[in-house]
Simulated scan of single mutants.
Amino acid sequence: MFSSNHHRSATGPPAAGTPDSAMHAAPTTAPGWTRRGLGRLAAGALFAVAVPAGLSACDLFGADPEPTPEPDPLAGLLADTIALADQYDAAIAAFPELSATVLTVAATHRAHARELARVTDIPLPDPSGSATAAAPGPSTTTQAAPSPPVDLAATRSALRTSEEQAGTAAAAACRTAPADRAAMLGSITAARACHLELLR
């Protein structure tokens, strides 16, 4: 009996006044971690789940815009070729007697413009609109816009000047062009040299 009563008293309810902290062990955290640190870790894990795979945090706020592509190196030559063909057309309209000499030259420049438009993927302007405004790129010559023809001699002189500048520009483009464009530009350069002979 004594041993049984002694066993019950040893395992009976705790004495009055015993604090709750003695009854329930305080929760513990992993060594080296604080509750605040664990909270931050949990928040980061939730963010990682919310962001789709392959999407960075910067993408959530918008990526930098794509850079504007550089104009084709032959865009300026195309614009000048169209302008030169227009100059020939204006000369022929003012002095029909020039047709026998320069009509085929003007047509050749139009053909060159079509080929340049093809390789640069730049659309040719609408024939009813402004020819030079449609082809982007800086001019390859320093020639100002031609003045309206005054007389036949002045018109031929202006055409020679423009043709000479155009030939120089084509030769410069040919020297720096890749192989798939060099042959075309060489042909244009040779044609413009022949045009000069017709205008002498």
Rank of each mutant, 00 (worst) to 15 (best):
10 A>H: 10
28 T>P: 11
104 T>Q: 06
87 Q>S: 11
84 L>W: 08
195 H>A: 06
168 T>F: 04
55 L>G: 12
15 A>D: 09
108 T>Q: 13
12 G>V: 01
122 I>A: 09
80 D>Y: 05
10 A>L: 15
122 I>S: 12
4 S>D: 07
62 G>A: 14
4 S>E: 10
42 A>F: 07
95 F>W: 04
37 G>P: 09
199 L>Y: 13
88 Y>A: 09
59 D>N: 13
2 F>C: 06
82 I>M: 03
67 P>Q: 02
109 H>S: 04
46 L>V: 12
72 D>W: 07
172 A>N: 04
195 H>W: 00
139 S>N: 07
90 A>P: 00
82 I>L: 05
163 E>M: 02
125 P>R: 01
116 L>P: 03
147 S>E: 11
141 T>D: 00
186 G>A: 00
174 C>G: 13
47 F>V: 15
167 G>A: 08
168 T>A: 06
31 P>V: 15
187 S>M: 04
62 G>S: 11
144 A>F: 02
179 A>Y: 14
57 A>S: 15
173 A>M: 01
110 R>E: 05
28 T>G: 13
190 A>E: 03
6 H>L: 11
27 P>L: 04
135 A>H: 03
100 A>T: 07
62 G>P: 13
80 D>H: 03
5 N>I: 07
182 A>H: 12
184 M>L: 01
53 A>Y: 02
30 A>W: 12
162 S>M: 14
74 L>R: 05
169 A>P: 02
86 D>L: 00
99 S>P: 03
148 P>Y: 10
128 S>N: 08
58 C>R: 11
142 T>L: 03
159 L>N: 06
53 A>I: 11
18 T>E: 11
164 E>T: 08
60 L>Q: 13
12 G>P: 06
184 M>E: 12
176 T>G: 10
30 A>C: 07
7 H>A: 13
173 A>F: 01
3 S>T: 15
9 S>I: 11
169 A>Y: 01
146 P>V: 02
8 R>I: 14
138 P>R: 08
100 A>W: 09
176 T>K: 13
146 P>M: 06
117 A>R: 03
76 G>P: 08
132 T>Y: 10
147 S>G: 12
81 T>A: 04
192 R>W: 02
150 V>K: 13
83 A>H: 00
71 P>Q: 08
175 R>S: 15
73 P>G: 14
160 R>D: 10
82 I>A: 07
190 A>N: 15
188 I>E: 00
12 G>I: 11
29 T>L: 09
50 A>D: 05
142 T>W: 00
189 T>Y: 05
83 A>S: 00
50 A>Q: 15
15 A>S: 14
146 P>W: 03
19 P>M: 07
105 V>I: 01
47 F>Y: 15
